Each structure stands twice: as C-alpha cells, then as structure tokens.
Simulated scan of single mutants.
Amino acid sequence: MERLLRTSLLLFLFGTTVYGNHPFTVINRCSETIWVGTFGDDDIPAGGSFKLDPNQQQGFTAIQGWTSGRVWGKTGCDGNGRNCRTGEAPPGGRTTLQAVTLAEFGLDKWMGMDFYDISLVDGFNLPVSIRPSGTIDDPNCRIQACNFDFGVCPESFKEFGTNGQVIACKSACSATWDPQYCCPAPQVPEDQCRPSEYSEIFKRQCPDAYTWAYDYLNSDRNCRGNPVSGYEITFCG
C-alpha cells in the first residue's frame, strides 16, 4: 500500500499518466482476399498474420512503445497465408526487400508522441491509408494515403501475376540491390545518400510517402494520444 501511495503521488506531481495499449483496425476494401502481415522489434501483434476477405475488417492491439511497427498487405497467398505473390515474409518475420507498401509506426516515442508513415522504400503492391483516432487535434496528425499507377513503373521493376497483370512495382533498391539506391549503413552515410530518378517516380505518385532511405522531412506524421491513440489502416480504400 505504501508503494502504491508513493507511485500515485509521483504520478500526480509529474503529471504522468499510465495509458493502455493502442487499438488498431485493418480494413480490406480490395476486390481480392489479402493476408495482413504485422511485425515489430518488441511485439508482433495478431500472431504476425491474419486473413481478410473483401470488405472485412479485424482489430488488434499494439503495446505501449511499439518500436519499428509494420503492417502490410500480402496478395496471392495460399489458404494458410503462405507462398504469397507479394508481401511474403518468414512466419512472424518482416518483409525483406520486396515490392510491398508498408504502414510503419513508432508509438509513444519522443515526448510521448507516435510517429507513422507510409513507406515505398521497397516498392508498392497495394493502395493504403492510415487514419489516426483518439488523438489530440494537430495539423501533423492526419490521414496519410498512397495509391500508385503501375503504368509509370519501369518495365524491369514490374512484378506480374499468374494472368499477366502487374501486381507490384519494385523500388530501385529491391530491383537492383545497388548500394547507391539502398544506402545501407554504415557503408553509405546519410550525407552521401540522395534521392534518385527512380525514387522520384514514387514521390510524384505519393508525395507524403517515404521513397528512399532518408526521406523523412516530409514523410513522418506524428500524433499524441487523447488519452490513447489508435489507428485505422485501409487497403484499397
């Protein structure tokens, strides 16, 4: 009881509030079934993968301080969510240099704020949007969305489905693994890494998205919970 009283007094004096986990909702507005991949350095929500039929949605929670959080859509998978045409990853693992649209999160970070973005650093496979909820009103805490016209994808960067349609567009990094496009640290320091003619293709399509390794100035969004932030991720919405 004495410890509880001391903790309560400290919380009162320093204005700190203990919040709960963060609610997420994922919605599939695509015309096909997708499997949703999840990953984080300190937590892998929903077991790392779940199935969503068209117009279906599912929720999960992310822990406080979720680090390197990723959510993405996998297409053309078998009945167990494996052998996917796009977005394949090891069980409970993260994607690796594949053409996939990523929703990325770092929750409860600097000054308690959440940071989120849409990343095309590895490429694009599905339109996606991120809508924050339960947050303090702030101009930088807003919906972020990205769609992409496969017609502008360089021919050698395109990935095709079984019927010959384009299902993904690789980035220059995932297509070539060339250090000048991937900027692997520490081989290529930040001051020597620059956008390329290929990353500019993605930037013109989705101006707010990450399109190369250090493209954070106009790409990061941040929110503060009021009291607990949540996020809605919609594919093809």
Rank of each mutant, 00 (worst) to 15 (best):
M1L: 09
L4T: 12
L5S: 13
S8F: 13
L13K: 12
T17N: 10
V18D: 11
P23R: 05
P23L: 02
N28K: 09
R29W: 15
C30K: 06
C30W: 05
V36E: 04
F39L: 02
D42T: 00
P45V: 00
A46D: 07
F50E: 02
Q56W: 10
Q58H: 14
T67R: 04
G69E: 01
R70G: 04
V71H: 01
G73M: 05
T75H: 11
G76L: 13
C77H: 15
D78A: 10
D78F: 14
G79N: 15
N83H: 15
T86K: 01
E88G: 11
P90V: 09
V100T: 13
T101E: 07
M113E: 12
D117G: 03
S119A: 08
V121S: 03
G123Y: 06
F124N: 03
N125A: 04
S129P: 01
T135I: 08
C141G: 02
R142V: 06
C146D: 07
D149R: 12
F150H: 09
P154K: 04
E155Q: 06
F160W: 13
G161R: 10
T162Y: 12
G164A: 09
I167R: 12
C169Q: 07
C169I: 02
S171C: 04
C173G: 12
Y181W: 06
Y181H: 06
V188M: 13
V188T: 10
D191Y: 15
E200N: 15
Q205T: 13
D208I: 03
A209G: 14
A209S: 15
T211K: 14
W212T: 05
Y214V: 06
L217M: 14
N218W: 13
N218F: 14
N222L: 04
P227S: 13
T234V: 04
